[in-house]
Design a protein around this nucleic acid. Structure first.
Lengths: 114, 114
DNA sequence: CTAAATTGATTTATAAGTAACTCATTAAAC
DNA sequence: GTTTAATGAGTTACTTATAAATCAATTTAG
């Protein structure tokens, strides 16, 4: 049972969201796409797009990324072609394969901090 | 009244999500942070973190970004300091100020496509 | 100037997500 | 090898977000 959710966000998170939403709106207008049009293409409502462009942290990340790609905004500096993305995914997977599968606190000081 | 939502995502969106989730998990393990610990610090449940690390498109973007910053993952290549983010936000706002406030289809061919 | 479309803001019924819990599995520390 | 904490997976009650609709305001095209 969920308890009443009250999230807080770090300054960094808020800024990242603000930047992303600004870039999206900016890109949409530059390409002369109306809110309605973008919303339809993304399969979301216009009200949802409004929230995305206002940096609402509660938006589904999938919807946000979809809108970004529709207005031609490159995520991860990785061209819309997506080939670079695929490469990075592969590299990340390889890296993960080498890392331990679980994390466990060791009893005596690993000197983890800083 | 919402109708039954069935979203689709472009390949690009899916890849971007996969990459981000992989980077998050990877960063978490490298820093020896348990799922429980990260979830608590982010103010989310462990089950939510599981979904984030599985690239679930329906996760709140705010929660995802918050987790990313907690595990030390830089969004937008912009250092965790966030000073660069602030600069970019400013530049985006200035750009937006210059763009038209609304988008409107012109009657006769602006030759918008391709 | 005028018309009309775009946008912003609200509201509401309904659909969907979330936290909490449980339990089995498994891998890491000793 | 043994212990035990970490993870993965699934369930459910309850909270929340979502799409749709409406309406006023405003800006752009002609």
């Amino acid at each position: 049972m969920p308890k009443s959710i009250v999230r807080t966000y770090s300054k960094y998170t808020k800024e990242a969201l603000t930047l992303l939403s600004g870039l999206i709106r900016s890109a949409r207008i530059e390409r002369k796409l109306s809110a309605q049009e973008v919303a339809e293409r993304a399969g979301i409502s216009r009200s949802m797009l409004q929230r995305i462009e206002k940096a609402d942290p509660k938006c589904e990340i999938g919807a946000v990324f979809e809108v970004a790609s529709i207005v031609g905004l490159a995520l991860f500096d990785a061209e819309l072609s997506s080939s670079k993305l695929a490469n990075n995914i592969k590299r990340t997977e390889e890296k993960l394969a080498l890392l331990p599968q679980r994390v466990r606190k060791s009893k005596k000081a690993v000197d983890d901090d800083f």
